[in-house]
């Protein structure tokens, strides 16, 4: 059986998990191609215009998978982790996809994930798959166990300072240069994985910054214990990934020698509109330069390049003056 996985949204966090999971169940995993102009324009055509770019891209990938002759397309509905929620658009992803794309109803393979921790391995959530994929509970359990191992392997690489696409390459057995240890500047690139690591929308932000001699730290390179939900700090954002990004920024501002923070966000992103302001206020208090880069379906590449250059130039001058 062929399962299509869209290369969008939490592909950039959970792909090793779901790849291993489906392979263990004896399915063939088909990944959509990397985001390109056609995918984005296909996505924009079918999606409500006001939705954010990441969702449009997800729909674009689903459309591209429809043409790839797969049996099912995997659309995970991430609902909550413990008492935390995902962004409402993740919760309603099933509906968005189902009602935007024709003939999607029978092809959609949906699981509703209400995990306790970062690892989505609660067996109850996957039981609806048993019938569709013709597998037993024991097989599901076994596959989840293996999936967890792959996911943790990938997380370990991230903690060493590899970006997530680099970690995926290493897991595939490719050679990747080791992460930068020393650099002129250290910048926290704060943003969701689906924005930061999708090279088409972020215009290869990490690569561009590294070429300018910057060591980039993203939230996924920090240990979950550092950025975990901490009620003692007051009310925190109640969206999982927003909380991760916000706490990561907080940690970097207070505990790491950091030269600046760049917030990479998508046009009309709900959670970011809140945490962006909060991060800005906190950077202001600690006198750390802060820049917001907002991306959408038609960002020009030179605009991003110019702003990165100006920002790093300013940081270098500032460091020199100290």
């Amino acid at each position: 059986m062929k399962i299509g996985i869209p290369r969008a949204l939490l592909y950039y966090y959970y792909y090793p998990f779901f790849e291993t999971f489906f392979k263990e169940l004896g399915c063939e995993v088909v990944l959509s191609e990397e985001t390109n102009a056609k995918i984005i324009s296909d996505g924009c055509k079918v999606t409500v215009s006001e939705l954010c770019v990441p969702i449009k891209i997800f729909n674009g990938h689903v459309v591209s998978l429809m043409n790839k002759n797969v049996d099912y397309i995997f659309v995970p509905r991430f609902i909550s982790i413990g008492k935390e929620w995902y962004c409402p658009k993740f919760i309603g992803l099933g509906e968005i996809v189902k009602y935007s794309i024709d003939s999607m109803k029978d092809k959609m393979l949906i699981v509703e994930l209400k995990n306790k921790t970062d690892i989505p391995d609660r067996i109850e959530d996957y039981m609806p798959l048993a019938e569709k994929l013709n597998v037993t509970k024991a097989q599901l359990k076994n596959a989840l166990k293996k999936a967890k191992i792959s996911f943790l392997k990938c997380r370990k690489l991230s903690l060493q300072g590899y970006t997530i696409p680099e970690a995926y390459s290493i897991l595939k057995g490719k050679e990747v240069p080791p992460p930068m240890q020393k650099a002129d500047l250290t910048i926290g690139l704060m943003g969701y994985v689906n924005n930061v690591y999708d090279d088409f929308v972020s215009m290869s932000a990490v690569k561009k910054l590294r070429e300018m001699g910057v060591k980039v730290i993203t939230f996924d390179m920090l240990d979950e214990n550092i950025i975990k939900l901490d009620k003692s700090k007051g009310k925190q954002p109640f969206w999982t990934f927003a909380r991760k990004v916000y706490n990561a920024a907080n940690y970097l501002i207070n505990n790491v020698e950091i030269d600046g923070i760049i917030h990479l966000t998508a046009f009309a992103c709900g959670p970011d509109s809140v945490i962006g302001k909060m991060m800005e206020l906190e950077c202001g208090e600690k006198d750390i330069p802060f820049m917001t880069i907002r991306i959408d379906e038609h960002t020009g590449e030179s605009h991003v390049q110019t702003r990165f250059e100006a920002f790093t130039d300013m940081l270098k001058m500032r460091k020199g003056a100290k």
């Binding site: 999606t47 409500v48 006001e50 962004c87 409402p88 658009k89 309603g92 509906e95 968005i96 709900g270």
Partner: peptide
């Protein structure tokens, strides 16, 4: 956020 789902 939630009403965009309704709209879809």
């Amino acid at each position: 956020l939630p009403e965009l789902i309704t709209r879809s």
